[in-house]
Design a protein around this nucleic acid. Sequence first.
RNA 1: GACCCGUUCGUCUAUCGGUUAGGACUCCAGGUUUUCAUCCUGGCAAGAAGGGUUCGACUCCCUUACGGGUCGCCA
Length: 432
Amino acid sequence: MTVRTRFAPSPTGYLHVGGGRTALFNWLFARKHKGTFILRVEDTDAARNTEEARQAIFDGMNWLGLDWDEGPEKGGPHGPYYQSRRNEIYDAYFEKLLAADRLYKDGDAYRFRFDRKPITMHDLVCGEVTIDYRDESNTPDMVVKRSDGSYVFHFVNVVDDLEMEMTHVIRGEDHLMNTPKHLQLIEALGAQPPQYAHIPLILNPDGSKMSKRDVGAAVGDYPRQGFLSGAVVNFIALLGWSSKSDDEIFTLTELIDRFSLEAINRAPARFDYEKCKWVNQQHIAKISTEAFADLAKPFVEAENLPITENYAAVIAAVKEKVRLLTEVPAAIDFLVTDTATQDEEAVAKAKANPNAALLPALADQLANGTEWSAEKAKEAIGEVAAAHGAKAGQLMFPVRVALSGRAHGPDLGDIFAILGKEKCVARLRSFH
RNA sequence: GACCCGUUCGUCUAUCGGUUAGGACUCCAGGUUUUCAUCCUGGCAAGAAGGGUUCGACUCCCUUACGGGUCGCCA
């Protein structure tokens, strides 16, 4: 029996990071077991569904790299994959329930009569959980068909999971209390239930429920905030799941290899934006300079910085200095323009440095040198410093600030090489 | 309120009765880098509380506290 999992979002908003992780776990589980991953759009709430939301979810899935084997734009033997187009199927199941005498009218709506007995679920993450359905006050019979004729979530969700032959349902813990309802429905339909795995929710840093507007909540925000897809996938996988080793940085392929439902935690995890950025930095360090250059390009252009002919060298100089792609423009502006804003504090500090007085001498030496290279330039710093009884290291800070306008940045040799002789000389001379 | 689930450094986590309770992020201190960053080393920092069970409990049981979830003709 091959594994079949699904992600079943309703297109009523953007793709939430919690939803993204649910999709990821279903996808990982399917890929790990050479199974099938299905995307199903649960658009039964006509009033709240929007085309923008549907698109945002698809975009988010694509960006995260979670491809589906069956679903919208892909097809498959169990379509259509939009619930709004599956009404005949639901009608047929509704008739079954009616024939089994499990439904009764309440106004124009239909309610499902629960079996009044304890229901025990065997959750792959939560273990055995029993809800006593003899307590009617806590478990009132549920509506399956509204008075307007439409079906509710519980019913269509169960029917589709059965129809689409799901073997494993991995979903957020907010669905744990729904599961006995689904089990009852499945039993009444005379079918076998899939295996369930309820994963803990993702909370804000302060422990509150993560929702709209909270930092990190929308998957769609990550690309423009300068995150790499692989880093975000890596980070959210670590929220509630552990590889049981000291390793933390994984590619999607490595995650497939290591993933298991048994390793999912029970307690909700808080979202740590700082660590997410650190993971991003780790991923930036791992990709090639070419790949990094391509990813950074849109951010550079967005700040109206020129893509110079030595762009590759410029990008290489800052690759391991940034945590987010959004930091790239500010890290390279002084290398590609002469109008970059300066860090006034660093400039003031450098000008107050006694060794700043040696900058004109250094400029002269660089200007008069017959050979120009980054290595020669660095050597010149040592020579000028020595000639005036100073150490090379002490002269480097003023030089750095004179050339870049800030206290931190690329290696001085990279700066010399990228800026070239003329600009270096000019910036050293004008720094006073 | 009722019903579920949970509780190890500030955060993410390892530990499946016997460990100096380990790793990572953050922060601090050194070192490497003649500079910046990377990197390396070290440091700060945890079993919610109280009862049991046991030779021995973070680990098993109970109670309390706290946190989260659910109680719709939303999904």
